[in-house]
Amino acid sequence: MSEFFNQYFDFTVMGDHFSEVLEGFLKNLLLFAVVLVLALTWGLILALIRQLPGKKFIPLRGLTIAYIDVFRAMPLLIVILLISGGLPYLEFIPKDIRIPQWFGQPDPFWYGALALTLVYGAYIAEVYRAGIEAVPPGQIEAARSLGMSHSQAMRHIVVPQAITKIPAPMLNELNSLLKDTTLVSVVALGESLLIGREVLAETFNSSAVMLAGLMFLVITLPLARLVDYLIKRNQGKVTRGAHIEVA
């Protein structure tokens, strides 16, 4: 038992490497913040394409559905490896894009950001879709009967209502996204897990890896409580609504 504690909870090791691991964790948070913006936008675009009406959009809708299915079916780690291993060799792409080092971040950061955006965009598109489909069809009919185009109805009527229906599932996705930023360590981005493993290789002690895990808990545990709270509050709303209708 004490061996276990020494291996994972050696406070000397944690203390010695605290600032390095924290610096790595801040990189996780930065990657998370970048992907958060990109994936929320990309997911919304995918969800909106999926809702385009009429026969002429069948090919585009089909393509979007295929994209969403494939990127949810593909292991994220493999997507990260494929992008960081493939993109630099696509020579028809300008060098600044295939080996991006924007805003002082190294190329693994951007490969990770791209992979996470591609995959999480697909998951988030499905969350948006659930919200859009939860808006009663009468809302679109009312908007259309007032002369609004499909895109006006989506922008002013459907999407604003849809996003109020999905905060809990969306936060779940974002929670997973934050944790999955550690996977980018596989392409040598110096984030908390990679630093933890470097310390492990140096000291044969896993406490720095554990420390990285604990840093995640500080954010993800309160998030889990928040999701629970939002779900409960939402159920309360539904019950009250039903009560009004009965009365």
Binding site: G138, Q139, E141, A142, S145, G147, P160, T164
Partner: peptide
């Protein structure tokens, strides 16, 4: 059509937000 024809529904369909 839609700029000449107004419609009112059984379930009102007001925009709740």
């Amino acid at each position: 059509v839609r700029q000449r024809v107004g419609m009112v529904f059984q379930q009102f369909n007001l925009f709740p937000h």
